[in-house]
């Protein structure tokens, strides 16, 4: 009986969470250029309940917009760990997927998922605002079905992520 109530609470909470996603406005690479048209009048992402926010404590989504330097990775990890559970990460563009055009660079990390858990990737260089909005809708579906569990994975496999982070950060 108690388990059933807990499940119901979780379902309702997920339903509310997917309707109000606050995105931290933290830009790591050139992909951030596609965000202003997504936010403003042309594509208006606030229709879906999304809003840009400025501090990590208030935000729910972290967008890794494009390539991620080793130098920036340190800050991204700080920001990610400052965010409050439940939190979601979207890898944005082909650089976050596999390094993209920076695949042989010594200063850029190749695969985001080895350092912080990504819930979703958007392919393309650059992804258009339509693709970003589709990605947000997919993320909402994942949250609704309880599959967006990156923050749980980060807690469970902390040793793995910390090991990978230590390798590049030194």
């Amino acid at each position: 009986m108690e388990k059933m109530t807990q499940d119901q609470v979780r379902t309702i909470a997920n339903m509310l969470r997917k309707r109000s996603l606050w995105m931290i406005h933290y830009c790591t690479g050139c992909g951030a250029m596609e965000l202003p048209p997504t936010m403003t009048s042309r594509y208006d992402m606030s229709r879906l309940g999304l809003a840009p926010f400025v501090t990590s404590r208030q935000a729910d989504i972290l967008l890794i917009t494009g390539y991620l330097n080793v130098k920036t990775l340190r800050r991204v990890i700080t920001v990610y760990e400052q965010m409050l559970d439940p939190k979601y990460v979207i890898g944005f563009g082909s650089c976050a997927l596999n390094g993209g055009v920076y695949w042989d660079s010594y200063a850029v990390i190749k695969q985001l998922d080895r350092y912080i858990p990504a819930d979703l990737y958007i392919a393309g260089c650059m992804p258009r605002p339509e693709a970003i909005i589709t990605a947000f809708q997919d993320l909402m579906d994942l949250i609704d079905s309880g599959k967006a569990d990156g923050y749980k994975r980060y807690k469970r496999d902390l040793a793995y992520y910390k090991e990978n982070q230590r390798k590049v950060l030194g």
Binding site: R19, S20, T40, S41, D44, S46, R47, G49, A51
Partner: peptide, 10 residues
């Protein structure tokens, strides 16, 4: 701002 805006109960 000529946007549609969030749902009214946002």
């Amino acid at each position: 701002q000529r946007r549609y805006g969030p749902p009214i109960i946002q």
